[in-house]
Simulated scan of single mutants.
Amino acid sequence: MARLGDNDGVLVDTEHLYYKSTKEVLSEVGVLLSEEVYVERSLRAGRSLFDVLCDDGFSDEAVRKLRERRDALYAQYIENEDVAVSGMERVISKLHGSVKMGVVTSSKRGHFDAIHKKTGFMGYFDFSVVREDCVESKPSPEPYLKGVALSGFSASECLAVEDSERGLRSAVSAGIDCIVTPRNLSLGMDFTDARAICRNPDELLSFIKPLI
């Protein structure tokens, strides 16, 4: 069996920092980003928040520079905050050695590595799939299909852990059963297709352990 799962919102609590950095950069060019719009476009649909700038006539170069500024601001935020989800290290340490584990995320490699240089979590995992490894990001099944291939198991032998609709859709579209652990911005989303909903790391561990 392989356990595949998201990074932001599952292992670490960083989604609010990504929203904060995106909101700040967009406000500099007169675009107000509400939490509701962020949740709908990013966490549900998996669309870039910068698409609206292209629609408003911003050049590709201008949008690229704004993305770079957002990425730099986000890097500062994750560097200065303790982002590990409380109790999650206990979960992954208990599973380590019993199942093959991989992280499947839409995070960029630089941000991902910076986060886990602090958490030390990657010592428990066998592999990771990040944004640069895929042509399409979640909710496309591509990230999880790559994760399945790296695991050496079939999709039916894998179990995903996600926190958002886009992540759930990605896993299910790849043929993987998915547990959802909603956090903060993803609370109240439609998780009808989830195998289970776990509200905290203890519930997650209790659900997974009997399956091993």
Rank of each mutant, 00 (worst) to 15 (best):
C198H: 06
A114E: 13
I115M: 12
V148S: 00
P182V: 03
F112R: 03
E162S: 06
A114Y: 03
N184S: 14
R199E: 04
C158E: 04
E157F: 06
D113A: 12
V148Q: 00
T105M: 00
D113E: 14
K108D: 12
N200L: 02
S156F: 13
S140K: 11
D193M: 14
R109I: 13
D133V: 08
G188T: 08
D202H: 12
L168V: 04
S107G: 10
P139M: 07
D193E: 15
E162D: 05
A155S: 10
I179G: 00
L145T: 11
F112I: 05
A149Y: 10
G152Q: 00
D202Q: 14
K117G: 13
S154V: 07
K118S: 11
V104Y: 03
S106R: 12
P139E: 02
L204H: 05
K146H: 08
G102N: 07
V161E: 11
M101P: 05
A171P: 12
L95S: 04
S137Y: 09
A196C: 05
S173N: 13
V103A: 02
E203S: 02
K94M: 13
G110K: 15
G175Q: 03
G97T: 09
D177P: 13
Y124K: 13
R199L: 14
V129Y: 01
T119N: 00
V172Q: 03
V99Y: 10
F191H: 01
G175C: 09
L145N: 12
D190W: 02
R169Q: 08
V135T: 15
R183D: 09
D126T: 11
V148C: 01
G97V: 12
P201L: 02
S151P: 11
G152N: 00
G175P: 03
S151D: 07
G175L: 07
F125E: 09
S151V: 02
S93E: 15
C134Y: 01
G110R: 14
M122I: 11
K146A: 05
H116Q: 07
K108T: 14
K118F: 04
R131K: 12
A160H: 01
V104F: 01
P182Y: 04
S170H: 06
H96P: 04
N200C: 09
E203T: 10
D177Q: 13
D126A: 09
T119F: 01
L95K: 02
K108H: 15
S98P: 10
D202C: 07
T192K: 15
P143R: 06
I179F: 01
H116L: 06
R195I: 11
L145E: 13
F121A: 07
A114P: 05
A171Y: 04
P139W: 03
T105A: 07
R199A: 14
A155N: 11
K138V: 03
P143M: 11
E203H: 08
M122G: 09
C158T: 00
G120Q: 06
E136P: 11
S170C: 04
P201C: 09
L159N: 09
V104C: 09
S156P: 11
G152E: 01
M189K: 10
I197E: 07
K138Q: 00
R166N: 14
S170F: 03
D133G: 06
K94N: 15
S128N: 14
G102H: 02
G175E: 08
H111K: 11
G97E: 08
D202K: 15
A194N: 09
L185W: 10
F153G: 07
S170T: 06
R109L: 15
C178A: 13
S154P: 08
D190M: 00
